[in-house]
């Protein structure tokens, strides 16, 4: 049901796009195409294997992500985080108890959950944050007005706001040219490396994790993520809120 509806919406959307987009190019046969290289999925999901991850690996993932996306390192509480370390207790306080001694302080990776039912998308007054067909919750930095309603809406603290001009905290010679920086006054967060997927590459943290982070199509019964979720016990953050987070933690 869900699939066929999604396909129908896709088809209708494409048909509508054909004559609604690019009014200035009407008549010309030039126009937008989808890249043949891009990785496709019905529903992208991430599985983080807490057994395989260690401190060093997590640092590598964070470094890879923040480097690739030109995330500035701001040394105060107005900082920007796309993926970061957070103790188990802080991530899963509603699923922990006083005797979880060894797990309590163990750091885990925290990032945007790319919820199936994302409150940030619901509350955004300009659709600057939106859900893609493949489940990725994306930010359109061009459109964000910086009202920060999404930050109040996100139950996972996954969103950061550019209180500063991020360029002040980035070395001009060190910038990665393939991805823009942000400007002052917009919200940003993890994007599941949508731009890499569109080029046919896997997300940066997945590549850096040496197999500790799996990434794939949850709707495909033969995908790695689907199989491992069937085999091992896993948690998601705050399931009772009904946001349906798509980052799974293997315990």
């Amino acid at each position: 049901m869900k699939n066929s509806r999604r396909k129908f919406i896709k088809f209708a959307g494409m048909a509508a796009l054909g004559w609604s987009i690019c009014p200035s190019l009407a008549g010309a046969r030039s126009g937008p195409r989808q890249s043949a290289d891009r990785l496709r999925a019905e529903r992208w999901a991430m599985v983080i294997d807490s057994e395989k991850l260690n401190d060093e690996l997590m640092d590598k993932c964070i470094e890879a992500c923040h480097k690739l996306h030109n995330v500035p390192d701001i040394p105060n509480d107005q900082n920007i985080k796309w993926i970061w370390k957070e103790p188990f207790y802080n991530l899963f306080h509603d699923q922990s108890h006083g005797y979880l001694k060894d797990k309590k302080s163990i750091p885990f990776l925290s990032l945007c959950n790319h919820c199936d039912n994302p409150p940030c998308v619901r509350v955004c007054p300009t659709q600057a944050t939106f859900s893609r067909d493949d489940g990725i919750v994306l930010m359109d930095f061009h459109r964000c007005i910086g009202c920060r309603f999404c930050m109040a809406g996100c139950p996972y603290g996954s969103r950061s706001f550019n209180y500063y001009n991020p360029r002040n905290f980035l070395d001009d010679d060190d910038l990665v040219h393939d991805y823009p920086t942000r400007e002052m006054g917009v919200v940003e967060k993890c994007e599941f490396c949508a731009h890499l997927l569109d080029q046919g590459e896997m997300p940066a943290c997945v590549e850096a994790s040496e197999g500790a982070i799996l990434f794939g199509d949850l709707n495909d019964p033969n995908s790695d993520v689907r199989k491992v979720l069937q085999e091992r016990y896993s948690l998601v953050r705050k399931p009772k809120l009904g946001t349906d987070p798509q980052v799974y933690y293997l315990i």
Partner: peptide, 28 residues
């Protein structure tokens, strides 16, 4: 509301892309 915005010059986006699911839209 305006002084709280990070990008006040884009305020008109709320009208350009009306979003009935957003309470902020209705508040406006």
């Amino acid at each position: 509301v305006v002084v709280d915005l990070g990008q006040p010059q884009r305020l008109w986006n709320v009208v350009l892309y009306p979003t009935p699911s957003s309470v902020l839209f209705w508040d406006m």
